[in-house]
Design a protein around this nucleic acid. Structure first.
Lengths: 110, 110
DNA sequence: GTATCGTACAACCAAATGGTTGTAGATCAG
DNA sequence: CTGATCTACAACCATTTGGTTGTACGATAC
């Protein structure tokens, strides 16, 4: 299904975005407070353009939003993205619990 | 700190491993039941070696374990890996809730 | 013993990643 | 207007990733 493929791509982007320590740090910071792109860039030992790219990756993954304010671009954490990731992992956990439940049933029967 | 670097690398591997639809599908399957590597390989439109690599990525990320049984290698889901990922995301959620709490306080004061 | 099956691993390739520098457009300060 | 600041984006580079094929080796079946 095309729908599922799109969803897969979304999830790919989500976890891919979280698979980098700098990006996770950015998520942490912009979730706790407000930062401009250059404000973030000042925090890391890499070029402005590199940080800009990281923010772009987070934005495409819906983990972050940008809002123009004057000449600055304010980056904010998006709770939706995080929740989505949490819910996805919970699904796997649910599968595990189902299996654990079945095993418990088998043990109870045996 | 070296400890934190190692931890970062672990988390990188974790989310990196989850950032691929085929690997997520493998996790789903081996969490629900038992599969050999070739049993898994039969499910996907790619070579055995490709699936083998995916399993290796999941194994390095501690999302999966392998156990030799005769000439087969049995792949099983590791609950620890999933829990770790869940807890990590919960940390971010906690940061969000802290911030939401502060905002609520400010609104209550104002 | 021989053929087959399941696995491991190397070598290779195209595409994506994570970084760089450089250029250019808006916006603000003086 | 001029200059500084913030951002965007292109071009480039090294490394990693996700895939392939081919080879080799232990375990099993006959």
């Amino acid at each position: 299904m095309v729908v599922d493929q799109l969803r897969d791509a979304d999830v790919d982007r989500l976890f891919q975005a979280l698979a980098d320590a700098t990006r996770r740090d950015i998520v942490r910071r912009v979730t706790a407070g407000e930062y401009s792109v250059s404000g973030l860039a000042a925090l890391y030992a890499m070029s402005f353009a590199a940080v800009q790219k990281h923010v772009a990756v987070l934005e495409r993954a819906s983990l972050v939003t940008k809002e123009k304010r004057g000449r600055e671009q304010i980056v904010r954490g998006s709770h939706e993205g995080l929740q989505k990731a949490c819910r996805l992992l919970d699904e796997y956990e649910a599968i595990w619990r189902q299996r654990a439940g079945r095993i418990a049933d088998i043990l109870a029967e045996g």
